[in-house]
Amino acid sequence: MSASPVPAGTPLQSYKLRRGRMGVERTEALATHLPRYAVPAGPGRLDLQHLFGDDHPVVLEIGSGMGDATLAMAQADPGTNVVAAEVHTPGIGALLQGLVEHGVENVRLLEGDGRELLDARITPGALAGVRVYFPDPWPKARHHKRRLVQPDFVALVADRLAPGGTLHCATDWEPYAEQMVEVIGADPRFEVSADRSRPAWRPQTRFERRGLALGHVVTDVLATQVSRP
Rank of each mutant, 00 (worst) to 15 (best):
P124T: 13
A194H: 07
R131V: 09
T89V: 14
G53Y: 03
Q150F: 10
Q179S: 12
Y15R: 09
M66T: 14
K145W: 11
S227C: 08
I184N: 00
R142H: 10
C169G: 00
A94N: 07
A200W: 04
P203L: 09
A128R: 09
A126M: 00
R228E: 04
D119Y: 05
K145C: 02
F190Y: 12
V217R: 07
D172L: 05
R18Y: 08
L99N: 03
H143S: 03
V149P: 09
V82M: 02
P7V: 14
S227D: 09
R210K: 15
P175Y: 09
G79H: 14
A85V: 14
H56C: 03
T27P: 02
P135M: 03
R108A: 01
R210Q: 13
L48F: 06
I122A: 00
A120F: 01
Q179E: 12
R160I: 12
H143K: 07
L51I: 14
F52E: 01
G65N: 06
A194Y: 13
G63D: 03
A8F: 12
R160S: 02
S193V: 15
D77F: 08
P203T: 13
A186M: 10
R202V: 13
L99Y: 10
Q179P: 08
I122V: 13
L48D: 02
F153W: 13
T89H: 00
